[in-house]
Computed example of a mutant assay.
Amino acid sequence: MDRQGGHKTQQALGTLVAVVGPSGAGKDTLMNLSAQHFADRQDVHFVQRVITRPHDSGGEDHRCVTCDEFDEMRQAGAFAIDWNAHGLSYGIPASVREKLALGHLVVANGSRSVLDRFAGTFSPFVAVNVVASPDILASRLEARGRESREDILRRLARGSLEITGAFDVVTIDNSGSLDDAAARMNQTLSRFLND
């Protein structure tokens, strides 16, 4: 109770969901479909990441900046969280904090290597791990024409698709029908809405 004798109102906190998965699993496709599904909701936000990668490089719609611009933004506190991977810098804009404080759902493209940092930065936090069978991943990656099927299968054999940590993980298998995986993604995200 506060000094006036009333009950303190607990600030509503929204959930940050980081979507992760190996190349070829279809996480960008599922996120795009979910963004369309929730387009009329004012309390669901899909984050545009800031990345030191050319805008026309394919994949997700991101804000492209130079390395110097990224460093300036980092020093100015422009990111809620940022990290480096594969020679690039990635940032989640600090503006997500305002949306979470309103109790909204924020969905971001994450990275499996920094999920512990996400969990330490956001609470509540959930990781959605989009996976597919090695054969499906290999076929999708082979279609991109960057590696041979043999090289792809060798690389896939070295990595695990499982994610563990001190946070909630929902795994969505996108080996089959895209409609089924999209429905599962939408159902998962709907669980974290404050309706």
Rank of each mutant, 00 (worst) to 15 (best):
I163Q: 06
R158G: 00
P134E: 08
D151W: 01
T164W: 01
D116F: 07
R154P: 00
A157V: 02
S113V: 10
V170Q: 12
A85W: 05
M73K: 10
S160F: 03
R97Q: 15
V107F: 06
S177F: 09
R117H: 13
V128N: 01
T66V: 00
R155K: 04
I163A: 01
F122Q: 05
V114G: 04
G103S: 12
F125Y: 11
R97F: 14
P93G: 11
S139M: 15
E72Q: 13
A138P: 06
S139G: 05
N84A: 13
V96Y: 10
R74C: 07
V131L: 02
F122D: 00
P124I: 12
R154M: 01
T164R: 15
L102K: 15
V170I: 15
V114T: 12
R117Y: 09
D173M: 10
C64Q: 14
A108C: 12
V130K: 03
V169D: 01
V130C: 05
A127F: 02
E150W: 04
D168M: 14
N84H: 15
A127P: 05
G159W: 07
D82A: 13
R140E: 02
I81N: 05
L156Q: 11
K99I: 05
F122W: 08
T66C: 00
I172C: 01
A166G: 09
A119R: 05
L161Q: 14
S160H: 09
R74Q: 14
S160W: 02
S139Q: 14
H62F: 09
N84V: 15
G120V: 06
R63E: 15
W83Y: 14
C64V: 09
T66P: 07
N84I: 10
R112N: 08
H62A: 10
G77V: 08
P134L: 05
D71K: 12
R74D: 08
F122S: 04
